[in-house]
Amino acid sequence: MRQLVFFLIILLTVLHQDFWWRDDHRTLVLGFLPVSLAYHIGVSVAATVLWGMACKYCWPRDVDVPDSDAWTPPTSGRGGH
């Protein structure tokens, strides 16, 4: 699943280049949206879906830092970050 999600994200970046509609000023979606603009709105929606899937299936390990592993300020109140 992890590889499929990343593949789909890469595919989306390729499909972003919609050269097939670069000439079309006649087709209107919903009666007012130029097809190229409608397509890219679809790209935005697809990006939301795919990144949502990435969060579910490809979440990186080691990033959920437990409090026991977190930095704490020195007790003196000086130093550190």
Binding site: I9, L12, D18, S36, H40, I41, V43, S44, W51, A54
Partner: peptide
């Protein structure tokens, strides 16, 4: 024209989310 959406907005949607992730 409408190309500005793909050039900036839909690219931002994909790439910003990638940077956050």
């Amino acid at each position: 024209g409408v190309g500005i959406y793909g050039k900036m907005a839909s690219w931002s949607g994909i790439v910003h989310a990638a940077c956050f992730f």
